[in-house]
Write a protein that binds this DNA or RNA. Structure first.
Length: 427
RNA sequence: GGAGAGGUGGCAGAGUGGUCGAAUGCGCCUGACUCGAAAUCAGGUAUACAUGAAUAAUGUAUCGUGGGUUCAAAUCCCACCCUCUCCGCCA
């Protein structure tokens, strides 16, 4: 959520900045709502003040044993007007809230302005794509003989699910364990285990609701409020600090969580249908930081570096992209995507997305800290994949495949595989 | 699933219709005392929103959440959520 003061002070300027990410702010609507709100709120509060003071007078008069009938008559007429105004105020505040909740974050001035993915800017590249002396297979062809099974997954669940067996399942687990251990031991993150089902407030806090409900899996519960399967650990982990006032010396908070992620992928029909690139369920190791505002720029670089470290340790070539205004997520103020080299697609594909959100999520969550002046101030939040486990598996299969169909296990993963060096059929 | 207890400020804990945003204690902050500290004493110490240049002042709202009764609700009524205890079930 944006600071409403920004809109009050200069809605046109805000609209201009939002336009760079393709969002059309209805300035007229805002101005109208704000005008109405101001009038109604001022009037309502004046009436409430009148009622309160009169009620107190009644109490005082009664205590003195005086006749309260005249004052009662005075306040009686207030009731209806007040009730009507309170109702109108609640309505307009709800309307304003709906409008505000649907406005995306302002892009940081450093974000390249652009209209599509094509305008993202490559800022770094690491590793040399391997030169193959045989025809490369994609991860489906490499993985299927090794235990990657989409047919059975489709039977028990449907499209966009996968099932792993044997060494393939173990390699998947090894990747997640390795990432978790790297971030806790090398990068100073605290491992957390979190709910995979969350309530609507949590989804609202990080920005998935109200706008992107169709991307989520909702779980109805008889007689109870429905819950949502998390689309990323960002939701439960970031919301850990909701409605909290943190001590300054508690910051920064750094959390890492390994969770499954569930996405409906509505609107992605026909896209990445082959393989496990785009699934309804995938595992991800997520990094989350809660920091002081002054630290958030540095924290984004740092956090992105932590995700990069995993790619380097896995010896996977990648490039770092600064997303342009139009390509960033709703809540993001600035985003780097890390794209891993996939030889079969002969291209780089997203494997991590690292974003800073400024106070956008904190405002929705009411997550604050006591700053140096002793004032309560909204924290800044950041998160990034470190990394998407499913896509990391894809990358390992494709980049480390051998002519005979086996796959070399990256050195850092071998300890997690009981020392196994080569993943072969029947391994 | 059955039975019961409870949710009040950073914490503990009063408050059952009126001057209660809320006693008291602890904690914390400031000052006095002290060479300094402890002890003691005095004062202060919630959040959000509105009007506003304001971290001034004033007002409004908030005692789990949402509704209701009333001129007036922490206090009465209803629904829900959460926590705890016992029994049952269960990984």
């Amino acid at each position: 959520m944006l600071d409403i003061q920004l809109l009050r002070n200069d809605a046109e300027a805000v609209a201009k900045r939002l336009a760079t990410r393709g969002y059309v702010l209805d300035v007229q609507l805002f101005t109208r709502l704000e005008g109405e709100r101001k009038a109604i709120q001022t009037r309502t509060q004046a009436l409430q003040a009148k009622r309160n003071s009169t009620s107190k007078a009644i109490g005082a008069a009664k205590a003195r044993g005086e006749d309260v009938a005249p004052i009662m008559a005075e306040v009686a007429s207030l009731g209806e007007a007040l009730a009507a105004d309170e109702l109108a105020l609640a309505k307009i505040q709800a309307d304003m809230n709906t409008l505000l909740s649907g406005i995306p974050n302002l892009p940081d001035p450093a974000v390249p302005v652009g209209g599509s993915e094509a305008d993202n800017v490559e800022v770094a590249r690491w590793g040399m794509p391997r030169v193959f002396d045989f025809a490369v297979n994609d991860h489906v062809d490499v993985g299927t003989p090794l235990g990657l099974d989409f047919e059975t997954a489709a039977k028990v669940a449907g499209a966009r699910f996968s099932l792993l067996r044997g060494g393939m399942a173990r390699l998947h687990r090894a990747l997640a364990q390795f990432m978790l251990d790297t971030h806790t031991a090398q990068h100073g993150y605290t491992e957390v285990y979190v709910p995979y089902l969350v309530n609507a407030q949590a989804m609202h806090g990080t920005g998935q609701l109200p706008k992107f409900e169709e991307d989520l899996f909702a779980v109805p519960r008889a007689g109870l409020e429905q819950m949502y399967l998390i689309p990323t650990a960002e939701v439960p982990v970031t919301n850990m600090v909701r409605e909290q006032i943190l001590a300054r010396d508690a910051l920064p908070l750094r959390f890492v969580a390994h969770t499954p992620c569930f996405r409906s992928e509505a609107g992605a029909y026909g896209r990445d249908t082959r393989g496990m690139i785009r699934q309804h369920q995938f595992d991800k190791v997520e990094l989350v930081q809660i920091v002081e505002p002054e630290q958030s720029d540095a924290a984004l670089e740092e956090l992105t570096g932590h995700a990069e470290a995993v790619l380097r340790l896995l010896e996977l070539p990648y490039r770092k992209m600064a997303l342009c205004t139009r390509d960033m997520g709703f809540s993001s103020q600035r985003t780097y995507d890390l794209e891993v080299w996939l030889p079969a697609q002969n291209t780089y594909r997203e494997i991590s997305s690292c974003s800073s959100f400024g106070s956008f999520q904190a405002r929705r969550m009411q997550a604050r800290y006591r700053n140096e002046q002793g004032k309560n101030e909204l924290v800044h939040t950041l998160n990034g994949s470190g990394l998407a486990v499913g896509r990391a598996l894809v990358a390992v299969l494709e980049n480390f495949q051998q002519a005979d169909g086996s796959v070399v296990i990256p050195e850092v993963l071998r300890a997690y595989m009981g020392g196994l060096v080569l993943l072969k059929r029947d391994a």
